[in-house]
Design a protein around this nucleic acid. Sequence first.
DNA 1: TAAAAAATCACTTGTTCATGTGATTGCAGA
DNA 2: TCTGCAATCACATGAACAAGTGATTTTTTA
Lengths: 218, 218
Amino acid sequence: MSLSNEVTIRVAVFEDNEQLLESLHQLIEATIKFICTGAFSNAQHLEKKIAQSNPDVVIMDIDMPGINGIDAVSILHIKYPHIRVLMQTVFDDNDKIFAAIRAGASGYILKKSSSAKIIEAIVDTYNGGAPMTPSVAEKVLNMLRYQNQNAQAENINLSEREKEILTLLVKGKSYKMIAAECFISIDTVNSHIKNIYEKLHVHSKSEAVVKAINQKLI
Amino acid sequence: MSLSNEVTIRVAVFEDNEQLLESLHQLIEATIKFICTGAFSNAQHLEKKIAQSNPDVVIMDIDMPGINGIDAVSILHIKYPHIRVLMQTVFDDNDKIFAAIRAGASGYILKKSSSAKIIEAIVDTYNGGAPMTPSVAEKVLNMLRYQNQNAQAENINLSEREKEILTLLVKGKSYKMIAAECFISIDTVNSHIKNIYEKLHVHSKSEAVVKAINQKLI
DNA sequence: TAAAAAATCACTTGTTCATGTGATTGCAGA
DNA sequence: TCTGCAATCACATGAACAAGTGATTTTTTA
């Protein structure tokens, strides 16, 4: 995570706690190659403040009165996509982390992080990384995992042919079309689908399709 | 990331490069409160090696001859769910990161990480965090984002009633059931669905269901 | 090698669906 | 106020589907 010699990273801070804002300001100013181009206690008139401070990296408190940090990130991400945002928060609860990520935050650290960690995180953020405390990262990984494993609780084993036909069902094909694509008779298609329904415990095409998608059977 | 005084973290290493294996071994042994209970150059007879070394944290190289690191993690995650695994790799390519996460890895760091970072990562892993280099974290965030933004390209505006009926379709209800649940006649259901099909440019229940799910219309 | 599972086809029956055409009511915006 | 849209209902028809029963062939596996 080294930094080429010439660059000065322009950092703006949004933080409603005045004391913390001041200490962040000082931390940034005290660090060589950082310059604090703005220290704001709220995200009102966000665009004006950004235009004024022209930052490379924004440190954004997630909980602020008025416009909250997540909405602010959304706006920044759309209007100033080149600006990278490092979220800062006291608690690492799932919902906020997720909302911040969706909104376009690059990194996510806790306020209790040490000065050294914060400085490191700013550099990482500037360099295109996504610094996050291990506890946050753990939660992010879990979100990823859940979204890709939610299902398969039941043990459904479809044969290859059945999967193939189910896939075509999901694509919206009719029995007739499936028969044509698989070079089998429509009666065979019917027969396979009967078996699929039995294995999935469903009684119609659309139920089978929903189950196939939700459980990633195909 | 402090560590209570009494604990000694038992670490096992799997790494096919003998030199790297040796240097990791030494790094761990040289660190107070770590003990290296195993240094293996492959994951053959994984369970025996694990039983033998009884580690709290496993450092696993992702690319190994024979059984690769990802398969090894899968096995560990199922058979020894309490063991936390820190993946180590040279390259941070998306597929491997994703596969490792799915397999159940806790952290993911690059081999070029400094000794201090590696030690820190082991402690974080032990403490339930998910240490990862910012570049890896960036990729993980992108995966999360993509999975929740894919759709809504076309501008489809269904009326409230249409959404309601589409939702019921997705739940696998028949026209008759929908009519009953909405207190309307089956003809009205038919009529609404006709309109839905027109708006979605589809011609069957299952196509409508797929589109509704993929584009998160409901 | 014998049994089980998968893939194929056939016939039937009642049900559900897709689509067309057309009509009424009520509400909101130009 | 007129227009258009949303929601409601009605009737009709042919196509598609669900489910039952039964059978043959091939492949897999115990």
